[in-house]
Design a protein around this nucleic acid. Structure first.
Length: 683
DNA sequence: GCTCCTCGAGTTCT
DNA sequence: CTCGAGGAGC
């Protein structure tokens, strides 16, 4: 007889105590989101229980918190018949359809005004519906929805979800309780998982929903336990040996009291008007939510009314999903065109069957370059998934290979420029293919002029892209300088151009003549010389002439200019064509104030600070703020790093905000920033 | 020679 | 906004 097997009453008691403590901490941490003890303390208690169970294996119970990963991998999932079917929901996509829903149920309930009806509104999680069975308060089984009648047995995997209580708390729960809910993956967890997968060379998931589905369908629960899954409960299925309240809202409260996790966004609202208000409020906060949602769900609150309404085929009449416009849609590639940019870079663009994505009709999507096309393996005729992520720009997410028609051909970059026929070159190690035609190429000529006219360059407001196209095609202008030689007659003869408009154009041309050296240099469009570098050059040399005459060695003494950029600059100014254009421009009367190279630095809160702006500003455009900050000696950059001093946030900030917080960068809201600025201006 | 940081360039639709 | 690549610092 060894000591090890001698289980005393005291040991059993101890194990139960530890389990209770752990369950309680789990509940606080995962369900209430309010931990009571530090993680280290939790770990300590957990290890203590593990040690105890190791010492006395007979102590182990299936519902012990140490047993979240209990069983061996499965060969396949068993099937589970849902005693009460798991239904789907009907959808509405706009206000009209929702009003229709309200009227329909009001008339079925013999209520005159749909605004009288109480609803429970909640976000519609983008995850997997699941049914969880408790017997006498102990977790017994979990099943996916499957076809609604028969689902897959995922008991082992759901057991690993930390926000799932293995034991219900409280007392008055029914002997058999089936809870319905949604298993999902929080955005943050998804992001970290993908990062981990990528580093390990594994495959990454396209979105949190796929990641959740993939994780739940793992046959080996030791894999699932490493996946950051979470659970929200929103309803009930089979209930035996107990009574539940008579409204949806009260049922949810009851579920909470038993330790089940309910989405904190759930709200009771009055009438269709209340539903719409809720929809807008959730929609506005959508990005900030820690999980992905694809709409909201409204359920008639009172169960008597639910019963009265009943079902239509496989969906309840008393509930409806109000979906956000699709952020993802299927389209077909009708063709792949090649565009030529200002620098001669060839960009393949997918021409799409028009499709609604997130509320706008998308017809084009860039494919960037040959590498991207090969990575996606897109071909003309393919069905593709189009999405608009955090930003506005539509992208091709993936190709639906199953739908590929027969006899498709691989896309190849043309060997000659589609605009001018010059050879196309792809420099070694570079991704971009370039037209070698230079300004012989009409596309490059047009784009160069458009760049010259653009807002942050010469700000030539009156001569837009369309007009430039026309002028170049008619042969009226060949370069930016030619614009200043246009006369009223020539302009008025153009399509959609009356005398008045012609006058406006001439006025805009006149106005643009007054500029700054930095803008002018930027406007020239020298390769790799953008706004910042142009500014550096202007500050360093002070005059155009000195810049034009500087040699490569000298140029490299300028901030941020190395051998490559220096070479581009020297080459640009060495071409006769470019020198001629510059001369013409000067003759036309382009001028700028002389630069005081030793201009006294302003004393301000922002002097020599690196500032990043994100989100939508209320009081001014981003560019205006940028100018103001620069005037105060700040350096305004595009991305947050540890060198950033301030991040100014407007409404709906993007990923920059999170990054700033992670790096401990000081964050200013718009108001505070403006206060600082005004203060600086006075001081 | 490697790594981090910035800059430049391209992009969609209303 | 995102990617690629040039520049600069270690």
């Amino acid at each position: 007889m060894t000591k090890k097997t001698a289980i005393t009453e005291q040991v059993i008691q101890q194990a139960n105590d530890l389990r209770q403590q752990i369950n309680h901490h789990n509940y606080c941490y995962y369900v209430l989101d309010q931990p009571e003890v530090p993680d280290a303390e939790y770990d300590r208690v957990f290890r203590k229980l593990e040690d105890l169970e190791k010492k006395y294996p007979e102590l182990v119970t299936p519902d012990s918190p140490t047993q979240r990963v209990g069983a061996a991998p499965l060969k396949e999932f068993g099937q589970v018949q849902h005693s009460i079917p798991m239904l789907s929901l009907a959808n509405v996509f706009n206000e009209d359809e929702l009003q229709g829903f309200g009227k329909r149920i009001a008339s079925l309930l013999d209520i005159n005004d749909p605004e009288e009806i109480s609803f429970v509104a909640e976000p519609k999680l983008d995850g997997l519906a699941i049914s969880i069975r408790y017997e006498n308060g102990i977790y017994r089984q979990a099943a996916t929805r499957g076809d609604g009648v028969v689902g897959e047995d995922v008991t082992q995997n759901v057991r690993t979800i930390k926000s799932l209580p293995l034991n219900l708390i409280g007392k008055n729960y029914p002997a058999i309780l089936e809870v319905r809910g949604e298993v999902y993956m929080p955005k943050k967890g998804f992001y970290l998982l993908n990062k981990r997968q990528q580093e390990a060379g594994g495959k990454t998931f396209a979105n949190p929903r796929n990641a959740a589905a993939g994780s739940l369908r793992q046959l080996d629960p030791t894999v699932t336990v490493t996946r950051p899954l979470a659970l929200f409960c929103y309803g009930i299925g089979d209930v035996q040996g107990g009574v539940l309240p008579d409204s949806q809202s009260a049922i949810l409260e009851q579920l909470k009291s038993w330790g089940l996790r309910v989405c904190p966004e759930v709200q009771r609202v009055k009438g269709v008007g209340g539903c719409l208000k809720y929809f807008q409020s959730v929609n506005a906060r959508r990005e900030q939510l820690e999980y992905e949602i694809d709409g909201v769900v409204y359920k008639v609150d009172r169960l008597v009314e639910q019963e009265k309404l009943g079902f239509v085929s496989r969906a309840p009449r008393w509930a409806i999903a109000h979906k956000f416009p699709a952020q993802e849609a299927l389209s077909i590639i009708k063709g792949i065109d090649v565009q030529v940019g200002r620098t001669g870079i060839l960009t393949p663009v997918a021409r799409l069957e028009p499709v609604d994505v997130g509320g706008v009709t998308v017809t084009n999507a860039t494919l960037h370059n040959q590498d991207e096309i090969e990575r996606l393996d897109v071909r003309v005729g393919d069905s593709v998934v189009i999405y608009r992520a955090g930003d506005v720009i539509p992208k091709v997410a993936s190709v639906v290979k199953e739908r590929r028609p027969k006899r498709t051909r691989l896309f190849h970059m043309p060997s000659h420029c589609p605009e001018c026929g010059s050879d196309v070159m792809r420099a070694e190690g570079e991704v971009a293919a370039r037209c070698s035609g230079g300004l012989v190429c009409p596309a490059q000529r047009k784009e160069a002029i458009k760049h010259f006219n653009s807002r942050r360059a010469m700000d030539l407001d009156g001569v837009g892209d369309k007009l430039v196209d026309q002028l170049v095609e008619k042969g009226l202008i060949n370069d930016a300088a030619d614009q200043y030689g246009l006369n009223k007659q020539q302009l008025a003869a153009l399509e959609r151009m009356a005398e008045k408009s012609a006058d406006n154009v001439l006025q805009a041309l006149e106005k643009s003549k007054s500029t700054t050296l930095a803008r002018f240099i930027f406007a020239l469009g020298i390769r790799d010389v953008g706004e910042a570098t142009a500014q550096n050059l202007a500050m360093h040399y002070g005059t155009l002439e000195t810049i034009m005459n500087a040699d490569e060695d000298d140029l490299q003494t300028v901030q941020d200019i190395g051998p490559i950029v220096a070479n581009h600059i020297v080459r640009f100014f060495s071409q006769k064509h470019n020198r001629d254009v510059i001369q013409k421009l000067m003759k036309a009367g382009i001028h700028w104030p002389e630069i005081d190279v030793v201009s006294a630095p302003v004393d301000s809160n922002f002097l020599d600070k690196t500032v990043v702006i994100t989100g939508a500003l209320a009081s001014m455009s981003r560019d205006e703020l940028k100018d103001k900050l620069q005037a105060l000696g700040a350096k305004v950059t595009g991305s947050v790093s540890k060198k950033t001093d301030f991040l100014i946030v407007g409404a709906d900030p993007g990923s920059k905000y999170e990054k700033a917080q992670k790096l401990g960068v000081e964050v200013l809201d718009e108001e505070t920033a403006l206060t600082y600025i005004n203060h600086s201006l006075r001081g």
